[in-house]
């Protein structure tokens, strides 16, 4: 399977994603420069975390105008697998590939720590290796992860089981205390209607090796590998 990790000016998790795909998953991976207009040779595109263009404006608001985003959008519309992590998720929202928007964390602080996530739908390309309602321990690191969306869309997303990950406590209960950033309905990760585009605030690449304290991020990486193997 061939991954492309998109690099915007200001991305800073591209090397981490590259490392995990290359050294841990041992799959093919390239960097895709933001001025690239052809992404057809990849099986999955990764939009990594960081501060694209400094995020001096709304997070991801400028990155979505990068030339590569036209290609990413076309790739996604044709069913290509796209995962946006943290800033990558924010860019997908700005690009309209996923619904909703991000507000600042309710604490008004950047938050970097491990959180617990409940897998709400394990029948997706991104979570098929998870048990039903499995709790994953994966870190977050963001200032703007307070997800909002209009009530009608939210209702539809829940009905269509497109809310994939929710912040929860260690036992899997979705509680206000376990919500680190004020996100609507404790939402941590969502999919588009076709489930081929996945955006999440937590960083699975930071939880993909024992030595870093958790390997729960591998559930997500291995799911997409499994999906690819099954569906080609």
């Amino acid at each position: 399977m061939r991954f492309g990790v998109v690099v915007f000016p200001g991305s800073n998790c591209e090397a981490d994603c590259f490392y995990v795909i290359d050294k841990v998953l041992r799959e093919d991976v390239d960097y895709v420069w933001h001025k690239e207009r052809d992404v057809s040779s990849y099986d999955c595109l990764v939009l990594p975390g960081g501060f694209s263009y400094g995020d001096y404006l709304r997070c991801g608001a400028i990155a979505r105008f990068s030339p590569v985003m036209e290609a990413v959008t076309a790739f996604a519309r044709e069913g290509g697998l796209v995962i946006g992590i943290c800033n990558g998720f924010q860019i997908l929202l700005e690009a309209g590939l996923l619904p909703g928007a991000m507000l600042r964390n309710t604490s008004l602080h950047f938050i970097c720590r491990f959180v617990n996530l409940r897998v709400e739908n394990n029948a997706t390309p991104w979570t098929n290796q998870a048990a039903a309602r499995q709790v994953l321990r994966i870190p977050i690191a963001h200032n703007e992860g307070n997800y909002v969306v209009d009530p009608a869309t939210h209702r539809r997303m829940v009905e269509e089981r497109r809310v994939i990950l929710r912040y929860c406590d260690a036992s899997g209960e979705v509680t206000p205390e376990s919500n680190p950033n004020g996100s609507l309905d404790n939402i941590a990760g969502i999919c588009n209607e076709g489930f081929n585009v996945f955006g999440l605030m937590p960083h699975p690449e930071r939880a993909s090796e024992e030595i870093l304290g958790s390997t729960d991020g591998l559930v997500i990486w291995k799911s997409v590998l499994e999906h690819y193997k099954e569906k080609g």
Partner: peptide, 15 residues
Amino acid sequence: YEQYDHMVQLNTVVY
């Protein structure tokens, strides 16, 4: 320290 990203680059093995 939770306001600092102390994990990026995947090298931090003692937090």
